[in-house]
Structure formats: C-alpha cells, structure tokens
Nucleic acid binder design. Structure first.
Length: 553
RNA sequence: UCCUCCGUAGCUCAAUUGGUAGAGCGAGCGGCUGUUAACCGCUAGGUUACUGGUUCAAGUCCAGUCGGGGGAGCCA
C-alpha cells in the first residue's frame, strides 16, 4: 500500500533558480493537499512558473533544509485513521511534531526495560528510524503485564499502541503511555544475547556482524552512510551527471592496480590444460581470464566521451593482503568523469563535491552526528564545519617538495627522505595539510614515473596532470587526473610502462574518434564516512566488511 | 607481506617473583524507585584460544598453530 504525503507546513518550500540561487516566489501548496510524493505536490501546486520549465530543470523545487522537508510533508498510510496510524519514532521525536496527544502504534526492538514497583515499567524502544529511542510507559494494569511485559529483555521485538504525551521524566520530550503491547519475538536465552545494554568493543561487535546493527553506533553509521550515498547521487543528478553502471566483472587488467580476484567456472582441482600444461582459460566461462573490477574508470571514460558528465558509484574489489584500518577487499568507490575539462576543472569539482556531501550530513543527520561528536570523536562536527567553510589550497607537487625540504632544514623529522621524484608518504601529507596549511590541499602535477599511464603528460615532460586532495586528520581523500587524450602520447606511455598495447584497443579508439580533453577522480566511499564520523576502523562503516581471512557473514 | 601488542565468566578487564581463578557490567531471584549507564542484597556462571614442552607446581616461562588489535607498505 503506497504512502500518501500530505502538506503540513507549506511555508517551508521554496524554488531554486537555474543559477542555484533561491527564487523569491514561494510555492503555495494548500495544507491538506496530498500526493504520492513531495515532488508530486510541488508539481501540482506550482502555479507561478510554467510546468514545462520545471521539468526542463530551469526551475527545480528544493528544500532549504532537508530536515524541514520532513516537517513540511507528513506521510500518511492510505486508508488508515490518523489516530491509529503506525508511525516511525523519527516522526515522533522531531521538533514541533503534530503527533502529540495522538494515539499511534510503534514497532521496534527493545533496548532496555526498567521496572518500577509503583506498578509500571519503562521500555526504551528503537525502530532504527533515528538515533533516539522512544520511551514507553507500560502500566501494570495491562492484562499481559506480569505474564509478558516483565519478561521482556533487550533485543525483543514488540508492537505497542498508546497515546503520545509530554514526559514526566527527564531525557525526552514525548513518551508513549501504552494501552496495549504485543511481543512479536522473544529473546531466546537472554543471558547469552550478545548485544547487552552496555559498552561493547568494536572488535567484539565485528564478530557479531548480524546483530551489531542494533547498537547505537552501527545504527548511526548506517543512517550516515545512507545520507551520504543519497547526497552523492543528488549532487551529481542536480549537476547534470549521469550514473553509469560499469561492470563488476572485467576481462582486462588495464590499470594493473594491484591484485585482482579471479572469476571462473573452471574446476580448481582439475582445470583444462593447453599443450604447454598451463591452465587453458579459453575454456573458461568468458573464453578468457576474467576478474572482479578494481576500478570503473576506464569503462566510464567511454560513456564520458558521449554523455559528457558521468560517474560510477559501486562496489570495487582488491585482493591485496592489506591488514589496516583503512583497507577493505570489497569497498564502494565513486568516480566522476567530465569531458571538455582539464585538471583545474577536476579540482574544482572535487572541492565542490566534498563540501556538498559533508554539508548534507551536518544538515540532515544532526542527532547521529551529535552522537559521533560526543562519544566517538570529540570535535568531528567542528572539523566538518571547518572543512565545508574552507578554501582548498592549490599546490604544485614541486612546491610541496620544497616546503617539505625546508621543514627538514628547520628540524622536522621524517622517516622517509624527501626529494623530488618520491611519492608523498603519509607523514609528508600530514605535515602539509595539518602543519603547513591546516586545511584541505589539492596537490597537482606529480612526477610521471610514480603515476599511471593514462594521466596526461605535461609540457615539461617530467610531470603528469595528476591531483591528490589531502585533508587534515585523514591524508589523501581523493586521487584524480586529467586523462591523456592524445593518441601518440598515450601509445608512448603504454610502451614506456611495458604494457601490452593490444589490450587497450578500445581505450585507444576513444583517442582516435573525436577525442577531447577530460578528467576525473576516485573517492573511496568508506574513507569518506570515516572522515565524517570519526570512526577509527573502516570495517565499522560498512555493513559486512571483507578483509583477508574474514568473510564470515 | 613486515613490525608490534593481545587472547582469562555472556561482555569489559584484574590476578605481585611461577604458588587456591577475581571484580564490574550483563543474566536469574528478592528489595527500593517516574525510571532512563538506575540503586542495594543474594545466586548461578571458567578445559585461562589450541597443541606440545620446562617445572614439585604454569593464566604466568618456552616452541608451534589459530584468531584479533595497532602501525607500516600498497592503495581508495
């Protein structure tokens, strides 16, 4: 049964003009008007501008504050009386909720139960819709009070109906005075239920990956992750990009970017052999060796050369034996690619994009961010706010090296020696972004010998048009480049790197037929979540982490 | 892959020089209470990761295996 959306507060909806500024005219939807989506209401209520313009993107409805959107549109379940509606706790606990004194039904999992011998019990209930649990006040007069309510333990699933009233206690504004409560699923053997109402180590919870979503931290991470993923798509969509679903299975190792996972249907115990005794992959499913993708970049470049502005956002796989808090064997990567663009355009996109998604997190998930700020990483909100407000410093690689060399002369100690031609180490990146600038930096034009073959050769023939975005507290957050669009230069680079030119025939074709300058970058989604939340380990910002020796769930 | 630290109750951790296995939380029972990291009392709960060795005696020392954390490299 599809939900209906009803206008509750029409004053909070505004129009954005084509240049991004807010247009003066406000929409004027009628309170009580309803449709199957907020956009439907906006379209219907839009009277000042022709409908065609709205659809053409000349004007598009936006909401000045995403939280206010939730306040402006009240979803109702079709065919149900408001007094009996099933609602999410997020709707109940938000400011100026219209649900006060209404009778509603909530469904969720018990966090804690506390009994009062005054003849009532308190149950903290979470349904996952928001950080804050709802307090249920369960009177002892309920028929199943002693037979069931007093036996409810952490983790049990329940459905409760009652009136939402101002709380007599501290810690919450509204609570539910329960009229009826139904236990849907009991906790079998409460003593061994792993998620107790106490602090657990993240290491322990990783071994309980199927139950850790029920904790404060992992619920908050999941909502932040969703918020950021939505913001990624919204940013690109609003800026005219198309999402390209590049393949997971790939038959070329074009980038040579480390170890790949093999995809095969051959029998590992008895594979077909050729005359030399080697495994004969022509008999394999795809008639050749195939692997899981390590990057969608080369594939997405082909679509960039037709659609102009494109991006990928999907899973990526690396079979490297990396055991660190920043590496996963399966992670999600975001890779935009823009045509008729150079490195400066690429850098500008990276800066605008990062600021947008971090701003979205701050505005849309304030309760979850407050939790991270209070309990996980003190100061992470201020760090994000400063990031969003900062101007990214642009710096040449050559300049970065001379800054580091001067730092060494002034007594700064690095484990790795600094000299032109090296790749910047973590310690070097930290010095630049934390001590020298104290803010985000985009380092550009790296030596060609430490970068990939597809990056565009600069006129000095020593450097390529590569860039890294460095941020305080995390180091490299984005790596990108302008791509080599000149077929002769590209061929030379492929040869220099000892790569097999025939493997790149379709990639080279892009340079033979209507080649244009283009650029793009790659962003590890989980690393971005780490930066926003202050979570220390990347295994705790993805639902089911895959690392060497670990794929239990 | 390298360096380093760790593995004791359902969870978080103690256990002196090698000398009887402990606490808090959680769970069960009881008391108290519009409670919210509740509080008070009692009870249950252990092959100290595994295998072998040294010793009168091993959670503790030694060797190996497995698992995990942190750092490095690779990278996103």
């Amino acid at each position: 049964m599809p939900a209906l959306f009803t206008v509750s507060d029409p004053s909070r909806v505004a129009l954005e003009g084509p240049s991004g500024g807010v247009v003066e005219e406000l929409l004027n939807p009628r309170p009580g008007d309803h449709a199957r989506s907020p956009r439907g209401i906006l379209s219907r209520c839009h009277s000042g501008t022709p409908q065609g313009d709205l659809q053409a993107g000349v004007h598009r409805p936006i909401l000045i504050d995403h939280r206010l959107m939730m306040a402006a549109f009240l979803p109702l379940e079709s065919g149900m009386e408001k007094s009996m509606q099933s609602v999410s706790i997020a709707e109940i606990i938000r400011d100026d909720t219209p649900l006060e004194n209404e009778v509603v039904t909530v469904k969720g999992w018990v966090r804690t139960r506390r009994d009062s011998k005054a003849g009532l019990s308190f149950i903290n209930l979470s349904d996952g819709s928001c950080f804050t649990p709802l307090q249920l006040v369960v009177p002892g007069e309920l028929s199943n009070y002693s037979s069931e309510v007093l036996k409810i333990t952490a983790g049990a699933s329940i459905i409760a109906t009652g009136r939402l009233v101002p709380s007599k206690g501290k810690g919450q504004n509204l609570e539910m005075q329960v009229d009826s409560i139904e236990v849907v699923g009991w906790v079998d053997d409460p003593e061994t239920y792993p998620i107790q109402p106490k602090a657990h180590s993240f290491e322990f919870l990783r071994e309980m990956a199927h139950l850790r979503p029920r904790t404060n931290t992992f619920g908050a991470v999941a909502r932040i992750r969703h918020c950021m993923a939505s913001a990624v798509h919204r940013y690109f969509h609003d800026n005219g990009f198309f999402w390209i679903h590049t393949p997971i299975i790939t038959a070329n190792d074009c980038e040579g970017a480390g170890e790949m996972f093999r995809v095969t249907t051959l029998d590992p115990a008895d594979p077909p052999r050729d005359e030399q005794g080697n495994v004969d992959f022509s008999k394999d499913f795809f008639g050749r060796q195939s692997h899981l993708t390590v990057s969608g970049q080369l594939s997405v470049e082909t679509w960039c050369m037709a659609l102009g502005k494109v991006y990928t956002f999907g899973p990526t796989f690396r079979a490297e034996n990396s055991n660190t808090s920043r590496h996963l064997a399966e992670f999600w990567m975001i890779e935009p690619e823009i045509a008729f663009a150079d490195l400066a355009d690429d850098a500008a996109l990276a800066e605008d994009f990062l600021k947008y998604i971090f701003k979205a997190v701050l505005e849309e998930q304030p309760d979850d961010m407050k939790f991270f700020n209070d309990r996980i990483d003190k100061g992470c909100i201020e760090r994000l706010e400063r990031f969003v407000d900062s101007e990214f410093v642009r710096m040449e690689y050559t300049e970065a090296i001379s800054i580091l060399e001067k730092a060494v002369e002034s007594g700064e100690k690095f484990d790795f020696p600094v000299k032109w031609g090296i790749d910047l180490q973590s310690e070097h990146e930290k010095y630049l972004t934390e001590k020298h600038v104290d803010g985000p930096i985009i380092v550009v034009n790296y030596p060609k010998d430490i970068k990939a073959f597809y990056m565009r050769m600069n006129d000095d023939e020593r450097t390529v048009a590569a860039m890294d975005v460095l941020a305080p507290g995390i180091g490299e957050i984005i790596g990108g480049s302008q791509r080599e669009e000149r077929i002769d230069v590209l061929d030379r680079r492929i040869a220099e790197m000892g790569l097999e030119i025939d493997d790149y025939w379709w990639y080279r074709d892009l340079r033979r037929y209507g080649s244009v300058p283009h650029a793009g970058f790659g962003l590890g989604f989980e690393r971005t979540i780490i930066y926003a939340t202050g979570m220390a380990n990347i295994r705790d910002v993805i639902p089911f982490p895959r690392t060497p020796n670990s794929a239990e769930f």
